[in-house]
Design a protein around this nucleic acid. Structure first.
Lengths: 220, 220
DNA sequence: CCAACTCGATACTGTCACTATCCAGTACTG
DNA sequence: CAGTACTGGATAGTGACAGTATCGAGTTGG
Protein backbone atom coordinates (compact mmCIF):
# COMPACT_ATOMS: atom_id res chain seq x y z
CA UNK A 1 0.00 0.00 0.00
CA UNK A 2 1.36 3.40 -0.94
CA UNK A 3 0.93 6.43 1.25
CA UNK A 4 -1.83 7.83 -0.93
CA UNK A 5 -3.82 4.62 -0.54
CA UNK A 6 -3.23 4.64 3.20
CA UNK A 7 -4.52 8.19 3.19
CA UNK A 8 -7.59 7.24 1.18
CA UNK A 9 -8.60 4.25 3.28
CA UNK A 10 -8.18 6.08 6.59
CA UNK A 11 -9.32 9.53 5.55
CA UNK A 12 -6.16 11.05 7.03
CA UNK A 13 -4.38 13.54 4.73
CA UNK A 14 -0.97 12.51 3.43
CA UNK A 15 0.64 15.52 5.07
CA UNK A 16 -0.78 14.44 8.44
CA UNK A 17 0.47 10.90 8.02
CA UNK A 18 3.93 12.26 7.41
CA UNK A 19 3.55 14.49 10.43
CA UNK A 20 2.59 11.57 12.65
CA UNK A 21 5.64 9.68 11.44
CA UNK A 22 7.91 12.58 12.27
CA UNK A 23 6.37 12.78 15.73
CA UNK A 24 6.97 9.09 16.28
CA UNK A 25 3.31 8.04 16.49
CA UNK A 26 3.46 5.87 13.39
CA UNK A 27 6.22 3.45 12.36
CA UNK A 28 7.80 4.02 8.96
CA UNK A 29 6.68 1.90 6.05
CA UNK A 30 8.91 -0.84 4.67
CA UNK A 31 11.15 1.06 2.24
CA UNK A 32 11.25 -0.49 -1.23
CA UNK A 33 13.41 2.24 -2.79
CA UNK A 34 14.97 5.54 -1.87
CA UNK A 35 11.70 7.35 -2.33
CA UNK A 36 9.15 4.62 -1.93
CA UNK A 37 7.75 2.66 0.98
CA UNK A 38 5.10 0.04 1.53
CA UNK A 39 2.45 0.38 4.23
CA UNK A 40 0.30 -2.39 5.64
CA UNK A 41 -2.80 -3.11 7.66
CA UNK A 42 -0.94 -2.32 10.87
CA UNK A 43 -0.56 1.27 9.70
CA UNK A 44 -4.27 1.54 9.01
CA UNK A 45 -5.00 0.22 12.49
CA UNK A 46 -2.49 2.53 14.09
CA UNK A 47 -3.91 5.57 12.36
CA UNK A 48 -7.37 4.67 13.62
CA UNK A 49 -6.00 4.37 17.13
CA UNK A 50 -4.21 7.71 16.83
CA UNK A 51 -7.41 9.37 15.66
CA UNK A 52 -9.42 7.84 18.47
CA UNK A 53 -6.91 8.86 21.14
CA UNK A 54 -6.60 12.43 19.90
CA UNK A 55 -10.16 13.29 18.94
CA UNK A 56 -12.12 11.10 21.34
CA UNK A 57 -9.58 10.83 24.14
CA UNK A 58 -8.51 14.44 23.73
CA UNK A 59 -4.85 13.51 24.04
CA UNK A 60 -2.17 15.78 22.67
CA UNK A 61 0.25 14.46 20.07
CA UNK A 62 2.94 14.19 22.73
CA UNK A 63 0.68 12.27 25.13
CA UNK A 64 -0.43 10.00 22.32
CA UNK A 65 3.19 9.25 21.52
CA UNK A 66 3.86 8.28 25.14
CA UNK A 67 0.82 6.05 25.28
CA UNK A 68 1.64 4.36 22.00
CA UNK A 69 5.23 3.88 23.13
CA UNK A 70 3.87 1.99 26.14
CA UNK A 71 1.80 -0.13 23.77
CA UNK A 72 4.79 -0.96 21.62
CA UNK A 73 7.04 -1.67 24.59
CA UNK A 74 4.46 -4.04 26.06
CA UNK A 75 5.98 -7.17 27.54
CA UNK A 76 3.73 -8.48 30.29
CA UNK A 77 0.07 -7.59 30.53
CA UNK A 78 0.43 -6.04 33.96
CA UNK A 79 3.38 -3.86 33.11
CA UNK A 80 1.60 -2.68 30.00
CA UNK A 81 -1.47 -1.69 31.95
CA UNK A 82 0.71 0.14 34.42
CA UNK A 83 2.65 1.96 31.74
CA UNK A 84 -0.51 3.08 29.99
CA UNK A 85 -2.08 4.18 33.24
CA UNK A 86 0.87 6.48 33.88
CA UNK A 87 1.28 7.65 30.31
CA UNK A 88 -2.20 9.13 30.26
CA UNK A 89 -2.04 12.80 31.12
CA UNK A 90 -3.73 13.98 34.29
CA UNK A 91 -6.07 16.88 33.73
CA UNK A 92 -5.73 19.83 36.16
CA UNK A 93 -2.58 21.82 35.90
CA UNK A 94 -1.46 23.71 38.95
CA UNK A 95 -3.27 26.89 39.82
CA UNK A 96 -1.04 29.76 40.87
CA UNK A 97 -1.34 30.88 44.44
CA UNK A 98 -2.50 34.33 45.39
CA UNK A 99 -1.90 34.47 49.08
CA UNK A 100 1.15 32.51 50.14
CA UNK A 101 0.19 31.48 53.63
CA UNK A 102 -3.47 30.71 53.27
CA UNK A 103 -2.65 28.69 50.16
CA UNK A 104 -0.26 26.33 51.89
CA UNK A 105 -2.88 25.79 54.56
CA UNK A 106 -5.65 25.01 52.09
CA UNK A 107 -3.33 22.72 50.17
CA UNK A 108 -2.42 20.78 53.30
CA UNK A 109 -6.06 20.43 54.30
CA UNK A 110 -6.97 19.13 50.86
CA UNK A 111 -4.04 16.72 50.88
CA UNK A 112 -5.08 15.35 54.24
CA UNK A 113 -8.63 14.80 53.04
CA UNK A 114 -7.47 13.08 49.90
CA UNK A 115 -5.28 10.79 51.98
CA UNK A 116 -8.23 10.00 54.22
CA UNK A 117 -10.45 9.27 51.24
CA UNK A 118 -7.85 6.95 49.75
CA UNK A 119 -7.54 5.12 53.03
CA UNK A 120 -11.31 4.82 53.35
CA UNK A 121 -11.59 3.43 49.84
CA UNK A 122 -8.69 1.09 50.51
CA UNK A 123 -7.01 2.34 47.38
CA UNK A 124 -3.40 1.29 47.20
CA UNK A 125 -1.72 4.14 45.41
CA UNK A 126 1.53 5.88 46.25
CA UNK A 127 1.18 9.35 47.68
CA UNK A 128 3.45 10.50 44.86
CA UNK A 129 0.95 9.49 42.19
CA UNK A 130 0.09 12.31 39.80
CA UNK A 131 -3.54 11.35 40.25
CA UNK A 132 -3.33 12.00 43.97
CA UNK A 133 -1.73 15.34 43.34
CA UNK A 134 -4.31 16.24 40.72
CA UNK A 135 -7.18 15.37 43.01
CA UNK A 136 -5.66 17.42 45.80
CA UNK A 137 -5.34 20.45 43.55
CA UNK A 138 -8.88 20.02 42.26
CA UNK A 139 -10.29 19.73 45.75
CA UNK A 140 -8.48 22.85 46.89
CA UNK A 141 -9.85 24.81 43.92
CA UNK A 142 -13.38 23.53 44.43
CA UNK A 143 -13.35 24.47 48.06
CA UNK A 144 -12.08 27.91 47.27
CA UNK A 145 -15.31 28.29 45.29
CA UNK A 146 -17.29 27.40 48.41
CA UNK A 147 -18.45 24.16 46.83
CA UNK A 148 -19.40 21.75 49.59
CA UNK A 149 -17.07 18.87 48.95
CA UNK A 150 -16.87 17.24 52.30
CA UNK A 151 -15.36 13.80 52.58
CA UNK A 152 -18.61 11.92 52.78
CA UNK A 153 -19.86 13.64 49.66
CA UNK A 154 -16.66 12.85 47.80
CA UNK A 155 -16.85 9.26 48.96
CA UNK A 156 -20.11 8.69 47.13
CA UNK A 157 -18.50 9.79 43.88
CA UNK A 158 -15.46 7.71 44.70
CA UNK A 159 -17.61 4.60 45.02
CA UNK A 160 -19.06 5.20 41.59
CA UNK A 161 -15.59 5.83 40.18
CA UNK A 162 -14.48 2.56 41.70
CA UNK A 163 -17.30 0.71 40.01
CA UNK A 164 -16.35 2.19 36.67
CA UNK A 165 -12.69 1.34 37.15
CA UNK A 166 -13.60 -2.22 38.02
CA UNK A 167 -15.63 -2.54 34.86
CA UNK A 168 -12.76 -1.13 32.83
CA UNK A 169 -10.17 -3.46 34.23
CA UNK A 170 -12.40 -6.46 33.73
CA UNK A 171 -12.61 -5.55 30.10
CA UNK A 172 -8.94 -4.79 29.73
CA UNK A 173 -8.02 -8.04 31.43
CA UNK A 174 -10.28 -10.03 29.15
CA UNK A 175 -7.64 -9.61 26.50
CA UNK A 176 -4.93 -11.11 28.69
CA UNK A 177 -2.38 -13.13 26.77
CA UNK A 178 -3.84 -12.09 23.50
CA UNK A 179 -1.45 -10.29 21.18
CA UNK A 180 -3.99 -7.50 20.93
CA UNK A 181 -3.90 -6.89 24.69
CA UNK A 182 -1.98 -3.68 24.61
CA UNK A 183 -4.08 -2.02 21.95
CA UNK A 184 -7.34 -3.05 23.52
CA UNK A 185 -6.14 -2.03 26.95
CA UNK A 186 -5.29 1.40 25.63
CA UNK A 187 -8.73 1.74 24.17
CA UNK A 188 -10.36 0.73 27.42
CA UNK A 189 -8.15 2.73 29.76
CA UNK A 190 -7.91 5.87 27.67
CA UNK A 191 -11.33 6.11 26.12
CA UNK A 192 -13.55 4.93 28.93
CA UNK A 193 -13.31 8.37 30.50
CA UNK A 194 -14.64 10.33 27.53
CA UNK A 195 -17.33 7.72 26.96
CA UNK A 196 -18.46 7.95 30.56
CA UNK A 197 -18.40 11.72 30.34
CA UNK A 198 -20.69 11.62 27.33
CA UNK A 199 -23.10 9.31 29.11
CA UNK A 200 -22.99 11.51 32.18
CA UNK A 201 -23.78 14.58 30.13
CA UNK A 202 -26.70 12.80 28.55
CA UNK A 203 -27.99 11.72 31.95
CA UNK A 204 -27.45 15.25 33.20
CA UNK A 205 -29.45 16.66 30.32
CA UNK A 206 -32.26 14.25 31.12
CA UNK A 207 -32.23 15.25 34.78
CA UNK A 208 -32.28 18.93 33.92
CA UNK A 209 -35.17 18.46 31.50
CA UNK A 210 -37.19 16.54 34.02
CA UNK A 211 -37.01 19.49 36.37
CA UNK A 212 -38.15 21.91 33.69
CA UNK A 213 -41.81 22.68 33.16
CA UNK A 214 -42.81 20.60 30.14
CA UNK A 215 -42.01 22.67 27.12
CA UNK A 216 -41.08 21.79 23.56
CA UNK A 217 -39.94 18.24 24.33
CA UNK A 218 -37.98 17.93 21.10
CA UNK A 219 -36.32 21.25 20.37
CA UNK A 220 -32.68 22.03 20.97
CA UNK B 1 -9.84 47.78 45.03
CA UNK B 2 -7.51 48.75 42.20
CA UNK B 3 -6.57 46.33 39.48
CA UNK B 4 -3.17 45.68 40.99
CA UNK B 5 -4.80 44.65 44.26
CA UNK B 6 -7.25 42.43 42.44
CA UNK B 7 -4.29 40.86 40.73
CA UNK B 8 -2.44 40.35 44.00
CA UNK B 9 -5.33 38.76 45.88
CA UNK B 10 -6.24 36.37 43.07
CA UNK B 11 -2.79 35.64 41.72
CA UNK B 12 -3.94 36.48 38.19
CA UNK B 13 -1.61 38.83 36.28
CA UNK B 14 -2.95 42.29 35.49
CA UNK B 15 -2.56 41.66 31.76
CA UNK B 16 -4.70 38.54 32.05
CA UNK B 17 -7.40 40.37 33.97
CA UNK B 18 -7.52 42.92 31.18
CA UNK B 19 -7.65 40.08 28.67
CA UNK B 20 -10.60 38.44 30.43
CA UNK B 21 -12.41 41.75 30.41
CA UNK B 22 -11.87 42.17 26.69
CA UNK B 23 -13.18 38.65 26.14
CA UNK B 24 -16.28 39.41 28.16
CA UNK B 25 -15.61 36.97 31.01
CA UNK B 26 -15.30 39.65 33.62
CA UNK B 27 -17.47 42.75 34.09
CA UNK B 28 -15.69 46.09 34.07
CA UNK B 29 -14.94 47.78 37.34
CA UNK B 30 -16.89 50.79 38.47
CA UNK B 31 -15.10 53.67 36.74
CA UNK B 32 -14.11 56.46 39.12
CA UNK B 33 -12.25 58.50 36.52
CA UNK B 34 -11.16 58.29 32.93
CA UNK B 35 -8.28 56.06 33.81
CA UNK B 36 -9.30 54.53 37.09
CA UNK B 37 -11.81 51.90 38.14
CA UNK B 38 -12.83 50.22 41.35
CA UNK B 39 -13.13 46.42 41.63
CA UNK B 40 -14.96 44.51 44.31
CA UNK B 41 -15.41 41.13 45.90
CA UNK B 42 -17.56 40.00 42.99
CA UNK B 43 -14.57 40.39 40.69
CA UNK B 44 -12.44 38.26 42.97
CA UNK B 45 -15.12 35.59 42.98
CA UNK B 46 -15.56 35.75 39.24
CA UNK B 47 -11.84 35.38 38.63
CA UNK B 48 -11.77 32.30 40.84
CA UNK B 49 -14.66 30.85 38.87
CA UNK B 50 -12.93 31.61 35.58
CA UNK B 51 -9.77 29.92 36.77
CA UNK B 52 -11.67 26.87 37.96
CA UNK B 53 -13.62 26.52 34.71
CA UNK B 54 -10.57 26.90 32.50
CA UNK B 55 -7.92 24.95 34.40
CA UNK B 56 -10.05 22.37 36.18
CA UNK B 57 -12.96 22.18 33.77
CA UNK B 58 -10.70 22.49 30.76
CA UNK B 59 -13.02 24.99 29.10
CA UNK B 60 -11.76 27.36 26.44
CA UNK B 61 -12.11 31.09 26.92
CA UNK B 62 -15.02 31.13 24.47
CA UNK B 63 -16.82 28.26 26.24
CA UNK B 64 -16.22 29.92 29.58
CA UNK B 65 -17.77 33.11 28.25
CA UNK B 66 -20.87 31.23 27.13
CA UNK B 67 -21.23 29.48 30.46
CA UNK B 68 -20.76 32.67 32.43
CA UNK B 69 -23.25 34.43 30.18
CA UNK B 70 -25.78 31.76 31.15
CA UNK B 71 -24.96 32.42 34.79
CA UNK B 72 -25.48 36.16 34.43
CA UNK B 73 -28.67 35.77 32.43
CA UNK B 74 -30.12 33.43 35.05
CA UNK B 75 -33.77 34.06 35.75
CA UNK B 76 -35.41 30.85 36.95
CA UNK B 77 -33.43 28.01 38.44
CA UNK B 78 -34.56 25.53 35.80
CA UNK B 79 -33.78 27.73 32.84
CA UNK B 80 -30.37 28.44 34.29
CA UNK B 81 -29.60 24.78 34.67
CA UNK B 82 -30.71 24.17 31.12
CA UNK B 83 -28.67 27.03 29.73
CA UNK B 84 -25.55 25.87 31.50
CA UNK B 85 -26.07 22.30 30.41
CA UNK B 86 -26.13 23.41 26.80
CA UNK B 87 -23.36 25.96 27.11
CA UNK B 88 -20.88 23.32 28.19
CA UNK B 89 -18.95 22.08 25.17
CA UNK B 90 -19.37 18.47 24.16
CA UNK B 91 -16.09 16.65 23.73
CA UNK B 92 -15.66 14.59 20.54
CA UNK B 93 -15.47 16.56 17.35
CA UNK B 94 -16.44 14.81 14.17
CA UNK B 95 -14.00 12.34 12.71
CA UNK B 96 -13.59 12.54 8.95
CA UNK B 97 -14.86 9.58 6.97
CA UNK B 98 -12.56 7.41 4.92
CA UNK B 99 -14.88 5.20 2.97
CA UNK B 100 -18.12 6.94 2.10
CA UNK B 101 -20.53 4.05 2.03
CA UNK B 102 -19.34 1.92 4.90
CA UNK B 103 -19.20 5.08 7.03
CA UNK B 104 -22.83 5.98 6.59
CA UNK B 105 -23.72 2.43 7.50
CA UNK B 106 -21.65 2.43 10.68
CA UNK B 107 -23.03 5.82 11.64
CA UNK B 108 -26.59 4.65 11.23
CA UNK B 109 -25.95 1.52 13.27
CA UNK B 110 -24.39 3.57 16.07
CA UNK B 111 -27.27 6.05 15.97
CA UNK B 112 -29.80 3.24 16.26
CA UNK B 113 -27.99 1.76 19.24
CA UNK B 114 -27.76 5.11 20.97
CA UNK B 115 -31.48 5.61 20.45
CA UNK B 116 -32.15 2.19 21.91
CA UNK B 117 -29.94 2.90 24.90
CA UNK B 118 -31.71 6.19 25.55
CA UNK B 119 -35.07 4.46 25.37
CA UNK B 120 -33.91 1.71 27.72
CA UNK B 121 -32.64 4.27 30.21
CA UNK B 122 -35.84 6.26 29.87
CA UNK B 123 -33.81 9.35 29.18
CA UNK B 124 -35.91 12.16 27.81
CA UNK B 125 -33.59 13.99 25.51
CA UNK B 126 -34.23 15.28 22.02
CA UNK B 127 -32.56 13.35 19.24
CA UNK B 128 -31.03 16.64 18.15
CA UNK B 129 -29.10 17.02 21.40
CA UNK B 130 -25.38 17.54 20.87
CA UNK B 131 -24.79 14.92 23.55
CA UNK B 132 -26.67 12.33 21.53
CA UNK B 133 -24.66 13.21 18.48
CA UNK B 134 -21.41 13.10 20.41
CA UNK B 135 -22.19 9.71 21.86
CA UNK B 136 -23.08 8.37 18.43
CA UNK B 137 -19.79 9.56 16.98
CA UNK B 138 -17.86 8.13 19.90
CA UNK B 139 -19.55 4.78 19.61
CA UNK B 140 -18.83 4.58 15.91
CA UNK B 141 -15.14 5.34 16.50
CA UNK B 142 -14.86 2.84 19.32
CA UNK B 143 -16.42 0.10 17.24
CA UNK B 144 -14.10 0.83 14.38
CA UNK B 145 -11.33 -0.06 16.82
CA UNK B 146 -12.98 -3.44 17.43
CA UNK B 147 -13.79 -2.49 20.99
CA UNK B 148 -16.72 -4.58 22.17
CA UNK B 149 -19.27 -1.96 23.04
CA UNK B 150 -22.49 -3.84 22.76
CA UNK B 151 -25.61 -2.31 24.15
CA UNK B 152 -25.68 -4.30 27.36
CA UNK B 153 -22.12 -3.31 28.11
CA UNK B 154 -22.87 0.34 27.47
CA UNK B 155 -25.94 0.10 29.64
CA UNK B 156 -23.87 -0.72 32.71
CA UNK B 157 -21.84 2.44 32.23
CA UNK B 158 -25.01 4.36 31.53
CA UNK B 159 -26.45 3.29 34.88
CA UNK B 160 -23.38 4.58 36.66
CA UNK B 161 -23.54 7.82 34.69
CA UNK B 162 -27.17 8.17 35.73
CA UNK B 163 -26.24 7.78 39.37
CA UNK B 164 -23.62 10.49 39.05
CA UNK B 165 -26.00 12.84 37.26
CA UNK B 166 -28.58 12.30 39.97
CA UNK B 167 -26.06 13.20 42.63
CA UNK B 168 -25.06 16.30 40.70
CA UNK B 169 -28.56 17.58 40.24
CA UNK B 170 -29.40 16.99 43.85
CA UNK B 171 -26.50 19.20 44.77
CA UNK B 172 -27.27 21.83 42.17
CA UNK B 173 -30.92 21.93 43.25
CA UNK B 174 -29.98 22.36 46.87
CA UNK B 175 -29.20 25.96 46.02
CA UNK B 176 -32.65 26.58 44.59
CA UNK B 177 -33.93 30.07 45.20
CA UNK B 178 -30.65 31.14 46.65
CA UNK B 179 -29.04 34.04 44.84
CA UNK B 180 -25.91 31.91 44.52
CA UNK B 181 -27.77 29.23 42.58
CA UNK B 182 -26.32 29.97 39.21
CA UNK B 183 -22.72 30.06 40.34
CA UNK B 184 -23.03 26.93 42.41
CA UNK B 185 -24.87 25.15 39.63
CA UNK B 186 -22.09 25.97 37.23
CA UNK B 187 -19.55 24.57 39.61
CA UNK B 188 -21.52 21.37 40.04
CA UNK B 189 -22.47 20.84 36.42
CA UNK B 190 -19.18 21.85 34.86
CA UNK B 191 -16.67 20.54 37.37
CA UNK B 192 -18.24 17.29 38.44
CA UNK B 193 -16.93 15.67 35.27
CA UNK B 194 -13.27 16.45 35.84
CA UNK B 195 -13.58 15.51 39.50
CA UNK B 196 -15.13 12.17 38.63
CA UNK B 197 -12.44 11.61 36.04
CA UNK B 198 -9.76 12.19 38.64
CA UNK B 199 -11.40 9.74 41.02
CA UNK B 200 -11.80 7.24 38.22
CA UNK B 201 -8.13 7.52 37.33
CA UNK B 202 -7.20 6.98 40.94
CA UNK B 203 -9.44 3.93 41.16
CA UNK B 204 -8.00 2.71 37.90
CA UNK B 205 -4.48 3.06 39.20
CA UNK B 206 -5.45 1.06 42.27
CA UNK B 207 -6.98 -1.68 40.16
CA UNK B 208 -3.92 -1.87 37.95
CA UNK B 209 -1.60 -2.05 40.93
CA UNK B 210 -3.60 -4.81 42.53
CA UNK B 211 -3.06 -6.92 39.45
CA UNK B 212 0.67 -6.31 39.44
CA UNK B 213 3.05 -8.60 41.31
CA UNK B 214 3.84 -6.74 44.53
CA UNK B 215 6.76 -4.50 43.75
CA UNK B 216 7.93 -1.21 45.19
CA UNK B 217 4.58 -0.23 46.67
CA UNK B 218 5.53 3.43 46.90
CA UNK B 219 7.51 4.38 43.82
CA UNK B 220 6.17 6.22 40.83
C1' DC C 1 5.59 68.48 40.86
C1' DC C 2 6.61 63.88 39.65
C1' DA C 3 7.09 58.96 40.12
C1' DA C 4 3.92 55.34 40.19
C1' DC C 5 -0.05 53.80 38.79
C1' DT C 6 -4.33 53.44 35.73
C1' DC C 7 -7.20 52.57 31.40
C1' DG C 8 -7.84 50.97 26.80
C1' DA C 9 -5.98 49.82 22.35
C1' DT C 10 -2.86 47.47 19.72
C1' DA C 11 0.95 44.52 18.86
C1' DC C 12 3.63 40.81 19.96
C1' DT C 13 4.89 35.91 21.69
C1' DG C 14 4.84 30.93 22.18
C1' DT C 15 2.56 26.61 21.60
C1' DC C 16 0.03 23.39 19.04
C1' DA C 17 -1.48 20.65 15.23
C1' DC C 18 -1.31 20.63 11.09
C1' DT C 19 -0.50 22.02 5.92
C1' DA C 20 2.26 23.45 1.99
C1' DT C 21 6.30 23.63 -0.69
C1' DC C 22 10.54 21.85 -2.37
C1' DC C 23 13.74 18.48 -3.81
C1' DA C 24 15.70 14.50 -5.73
C1' DG C 25 14.42 10.06 -6.81
C1' DT C 26 11.12 6.30 -8.72
C1' DA C 27 7.27 4.20 -11.60
C1' DC C 28 3.75 3.62 -14.80
C1' DT C 29 2.18 5.36 -19.80
C1' DG C 30 2.21 5.80 -24.43
C1' DC D 1 12.38 6.56 -23.56
C1' DA D 2 10.25 11.05 -22.70
C1' DG D 3 6.74 12.83 -19.80
C1' DT D 4 3.86 12.94 -16.07
C1' DA D 5 2.43 11.56 -11.61
C1' DC D 6 3.78 10.09 -7.49
C1' DT D 7 7.13 9.21 -3.42
C1' DG D 8 9.92 10.07 1.07
C1' DG D 9 12.15 13.47 3.70
C1' DA D 10 13.24 18.24 5.03
C1' DT D 11 11.87 22.68 6.01
C1' DA D 12 8.81 26.48 6.16
C1' DG D 13 4.32 28.47 6.75
C1' DT D 14 -0.59 28.75 8.70
C1' DG D 15 -4.38 29.63 11.84
C1' DA D 16 -6.26 29.17 16.24
C1' DC D 17 -5.56 30.00 20.97
C1' DA D 18 -4.19 32.11 25.34
C1' DG D 19 -2.10 35.08 26.96
C1' DT D 20 1.84 39.03 27.52
C1' DA D 21 4.01 43.47 26.43
C1' DT D 22 4.10 48.08 25.06
C1' DC D 23 2.22 52.57 24.42
C1' DG D 24 -0.07 56.95 25.00
C1' DA D 25 -2.96 59.72 27.62
C1' DG D 26 -4.82 60.53 32.04
C1' DT D 27 -4.67 60.50 37.49
C1' DT D 28 -3.11 60.49 42.07
C1' DG D 29 -0.59 60.14 46.48
C1' DG D 30 3.51 61.93 48.71
Amino acid sequence: MKISELSRTTGVPVASIKYFRRQGLLPAGRATAATLAEYGEEHVQRLRLIKALTTLGGLSIAATRDVLAAVDRSDSADSTLKAISYALPVPVAQAPAGDEEREAEAEAAAAADVAELIAAMDWRVPSTSPHVHGLTTALRELRRLDADYRLDRLAVYAELAKAVARLDLERAAAFDDSPALAEQAVVVLALSGPLLELLRRLAQEDQVRRRSPEEDPDAG
